[in-house]
C-alpha cells in the first residue's frame, strides 16, 4: 500500500532534483524548471498531508493556491529571462553578476 512515507520520499526526490537544477544548471530556464520542481515537491507534500485534514481540506486549498502562484511567477520569470536575454545576449546566470557591489 502507498503510505505517506512514499509521498514524502517522492517529494524529497523532486525537491532535490529541483535544488540541483537551481544550483548547477547554466541555463536560466532550467533554473526556473528547478524552481517549479521544488514548488511541486512542496505541493505534493501539501496534498499528501492534506489527507489528515478532511474537515477543511486545507492541504488541497493551499496546493491549488500554490499552483496558481507558481504559474503566475513562471510567467513573470519568463518575461524577466526574456528581457535579460535581450540585454545580455545570454541567459547563463554565471555571466549575469551585476548584482555585486
Amino acid at each position: 500500500m502507498i503510505t505517506l512515507t512514499h509521498f514524502l520520499i517522492v517529494g524529497a526526490c523532486l525537491f532535490s532534483i529541483g535544488l540541483y537544477a537551481v544550483m548547477a544548471r547554466r541555463n536560466a530556464i532550467m533554473v526556473l524548471v528547478g524552481i517549479e520542481l521544488m514548488i511541486n515537491a512542496a505541493v505534493l507534500n501539501l496534498v499528501a498531508f492534506g489527507r489528515y485534514d478532511s474537515e477543511h481540506y486545507g492541504g488541497q486549498a493551499f496546493a491549488l493556491f500554490a499552483i496558481v502562484l507558481a504559474a503566475a511567477s513562471v510567467a513573470v520569470a519568463l518575461a524577466i529571462i526574456l528581457n535579460v536575454y535581450r540585454h545580455y545576449k545570454t541567459i547563463n546566470p554565471e555571466d549575469i553578476n551585476h548584482l555585486k557591489d
Binding site: L19, V31, L99, K100, D101
Partner: peptide
C-alpha cells in the same frame, strides 16, 4: 561574498 551570482546567493541561503 557579494559576488553577484544568483546561484551563489541561493546556495548560501540554502
Amino acid at each position: 561574498t557579494q559576488a553577484g551570482r544568483l546561484q551563489g546567493y541561493l546556495s548560501s541561503l540554502f
